[in-house]
Nucleic acid binder design. Sequence first.
DNA 1: ATCAATTCAAACACTGATGTACGACTTAGG
DNA 2: CCTAAGTCGTACATCAGTGTTTGAATTGAT
Lengths: 203, 203
Amino acid sequence: MTTDLDDRNRRADAQRNRAAILDGTVTCLSVNPRASMAEIAQAAGIGRVTLYGHFSSRRELLEAVVEQTMHEAEAQLAPLDLGGDPRAALDLLIRSSWRIIDKLHGLMAAAEQELGADRIRDHHDRTLHRVRGLIERGQAEGAFRSDQSSSWITACFFAILHGASGEIRAGRLSDRDAATAIPSTIQAIVSVPAGDAVDVGKA
Amino acid sequence: MTTDLDDRNRRADAQRNRAAILDGTVTCLSVNPRASMAEIAQAAGIGRVTLYGHFSSRRELLEAVVEQTMHEAEAQLAPLDLGGDPRAALDLLIRSSWRIIDKLHGLMAAAEQELGADRIRDHHDRTLHRVRGLIERGQAEGAFRSDQSSSWITACFFAILHGASGEIRAGRLSDRDAATAIPSTIQAIVSVPAGDAVDVGKA
DNA sequence: ATCAATTCAAACACTGATGTACGACTTAGG
DNA sequence: CCTAAGTCGTACATCAGTGTTTGAATTGAT
């Protein structure tokens, strides 16, 4: 994007403000996904006009925030070693993911209304593929159930994470409990059901 | 409410229109949760002013629609016999629930923004208690896992149902597949995990 | 047939949000 | 210290949605 070149040329305070905006938008929208540009500006500690100086429309702002956020998330998840035992890898992925998803819940809701679900999915896709890839490997190795599509199991993975996020926000689930409940439930989802032909042992 | 008395006294066409409004609102909001009063009126096949004649504010309309919808849902779920084997009862409950939840997805989204999540939960509570009650019975009888709180398992139940609803709407899951995948996955969630002390046999 | 209830479209005031324009002020950086 | 870049508040135009009013036209009920 043009961003790289711009950043170098811009004055220090402008760069600082841009960062503050991106940051403030996330925290602001996670509290209230319908927050106005005025509220976002206030959350970022700057004037509304200055906000428009950096992003000429709400849409442009959302787009930038989503992109940066996805980039950050990717940076946290990419270095994970998801090789080895699929169960352990899945656990690792969950532990690294659920706080991110919790934090991003509001942002996604806001972005979905403004950018459309498809636009989100574009950004979401890498994370999605990572999860599905792992699940498919687990299925191939016989560690995960194969009687359901990887697509469905992946959807369940995200459904549980989002559900947990909601429970936490509603105060019905503590961070501590979430950390054990989520992995345990997802393991149950991917496991080969009791009655099936269990063909453990690497394929 | 005053509704009961009013309905008798009102003219036939007014009653017809009121029903059309309630009906149109659901279908309209399930397509677009942010639909305006004008769009809702159009969907109901009446003029915008007439809409305001029946419901003096958007909030009042939403309230009425949510109440009626919940009432209908309750009417479908209340007669179910959830006694006997908890697993079978859960399956029955799922089969009766998931289409309802799918249909109501948009309505809930709209209502949540307008009425606040708490207001929704008030209406949602009966359904929620029904599910949790069943889960707790299953836990007491040893049919369901007891190492996780009934509150969490209930949340997972709804998370899966909502997730499935999203997958269907996105075209990644067919109605047919959903009908088998959902029960199967929820059974996996409630089941006692393999490593545990399995104390089957009615308590 | 008549009367009251109901509907309708068009117009109105009001609100809240978006995006722009301006001139004064502050700050980074040479 | 000087200048250009950046910020600020205020004010403005615009737009979309809400809720109201009005007066004429339909329509149900008796």
